[in-house]
């Protein structure tokens, strides 16, 4: 058994201890379900006004969206690696990967801000039409989560550097990582619904 599997398997079959802790998983479910409800309302509104939604969607920039998706997914990869390295006792690498995660998160925010500024330049605000109301609210809430996630990761980064966590004791890191991955999960719902499908 690899060290990773060993550490993880002690949690196996314990309903009260999903990886990262039960509280974060309750939060993840609530968040994911909330976004799903919002997206279902969105889909319903679209079915009632397909033409306007298609027109508005065409005003989005799928290239920027795709690039941003890749950035976010890559940051998720580095976060997962940071946790894996920590479990294997490779603290230095873990610290470095956490930093890369944070930086990629900032890149995501930067690209998103650029996208937002373009929209605002064209006078497309929250009340432009129903599509854009959803666009702003959903991506806005997501962006808030990403920002909160970065703050959490910054805390974790400094604690890691101070040597507060090691291969055995690092539940906080797992919890923070789970929060970060949750931002990915939410984006996996938002991106196709807003940018791609019609």
């Amino acid at each position: 058994m690899s060290s990773e599997q060993h550490v993880l398997s002690r949690e196996k079959n314990d309903i009260l201890h999903p990886p990262g802790g039960i509280l974060i998983w309750i939060l993840i479910f609530l968040e994911v379900i909330t976004f799903m409800i919002a997206l279902s309302v969105f889909a319903y509104m679209r079915s009632r006004n397909a033409a306007m939604f298609a027109e508005s969607q065409a005003m989005l920039n799928p290239l920027l969206g795709t690039v941003n998706t890749i950035v976010l997914l890559s940051s998720g990869y580095f976060m997962a690696e940071a946790v894996r390295k920590l479990r294997a006792g490779l603290l230095k690498l873990s610290v470095r990967y956490t930093l890369v995660t944070i930086l990629l998160g900032l890149v995501f925010i930067a690209i998103k801000s650029f996208e937002y500024s373009q929209k605002i330049e064209h006078g497309i605000g929250l009340e432009y039409n129903t599509f854009f109301t959803f666009y702003w609210l959903l991506t806005g809430f997501h962006l808030i989560h990403v920002s909160v996630g970065i703050v959490i990761l910054v805390f974790i980064y400094f604690s890691l550097r101070k040597g507060r966590y090691d291969a055995r004791d690092h539940e906080d890191v797992e919890t923070g990582a789970a929060f970060w991955h949750m931002c990915d999960l939410i984006w996996m719902l938002l991106f196709p619904m807003l940018y791609l499908i019609n």
């Binding site: 314990d14 201890h17 990886p19 976060m79 990915d184």
Partner: peptide, 9 residues
């Protein structure tokens, strides 16, 4: 994979 759900209950 990333969140370790495959090892969860």
């Amino acid at each position: 994979q990333y969140m370790g759900l495959r090892f969860a209950h």
